[in-house]
Design a protein around this nucleic acid. Sequence first.
DNA 1: ATAAATTGCTACCTTTTTGTAGTAATTAAT
DNA 2: ATTAATTACTACAAAAAGGTAGCAATTTAT
Lengths: 142, 142
Amino acid sequence: MILSRTTEYALSVLAFMATRNQKMYAAELLHQELKIPRQYLRRLLTDLSKKGFIISTRGRSGGFVFARDMSTINIAQIIDALEGADAMNTCLLGFTACIAGHPCAMHDLWAESRSKVIETLTKTTLGDLSEKYRKDIVTGCL
Amino acid sequence: MILSRTTEYALSVLAFMATRNQKMYAAELLHQELKIPRQYLRRLLTDLSKKGFIISTRGRSGGFVFARDMSTINIAQIIDALEGADAMNTCLLGFTACIAGHPCAMHDLWAESRSKVIETLTKTTLGDLSEKYRKDIVTGCL
DNA sequence: ATAAATTGCTACCTTTTTGTAGTAATTAAT
DNA sequence: ATTAATTACTACAAAAAGGTAGCAATTTAT
Ligand code: FES
Ligand code: FES
């Protein structure tokens, strides 16, 4: 399962904004480009602005802009903001705590894989995605 | 989020059965040991037996036994059976397909991390967990 | 001023996931 | 045979996630 649909939406939106070289994005545009349900997306965008990733401006010609430089926003931060700080630090076998001092039978192997994933997500910023897009490395839907 | 609660329950149950050296396990025992809601667990156990991981026997002194040798059941198989075959092969940005020929901006990095996780989960069997437990490497709840 | 284009908010609806209750079927012990 | 211990099944309830609708507030263009 990995991520909730809402989190995927958030990543999708922010990655889209990062790769297109446009200052402001209206919800309606994002809705049309990314096919995320209109009203649900509106709520998500408000949420993302409350969480400090983007800034909203109301009124005609309003929309959403990044709140800080894209290179300071990494993927792990976005996931954490939407799924809760340590949604990734859970025990694979579903025990309440996943701590090295009290490991389940999967702990060592799992903790290692997991930390690699987190490392990758942490070192990748929206700025990196932007660069990739400009270098035409990406041919997909985004 | 990573796994649904139900999948965690399944892993927890099967890992428990693998580590204790007992032939048959009644639902009631598993419920008490693992604190999984009684009726929900019952349904899950029936499901796991339909999926070929365990075999159920009804009646007095009935319960659940492994359907095949523990060393032939790996963690990835269990996850796949509960979450759907390629729940792990999704695009991190939520696009419908995640295929190398049509990559999104996250694809390369993500695909690499992901395949390492899958490799770990695939090469770890319930037999491995059992051994670990017997070597007292595990001190946790399991 | 007025209208148009936008976000903010609230209330509701639908679907999926998780959890509960009760009854039927099966087996073993007595 | 009867009872006790177990799984199987069905239907429902509660909670969480995802989605919809409509109106209020704000800003810009005219
Ligand atoms: S305790 Fe289970 S993965 Fe860490
Ligand atoms: S296409 Fe997005 S991760 Fe593969």
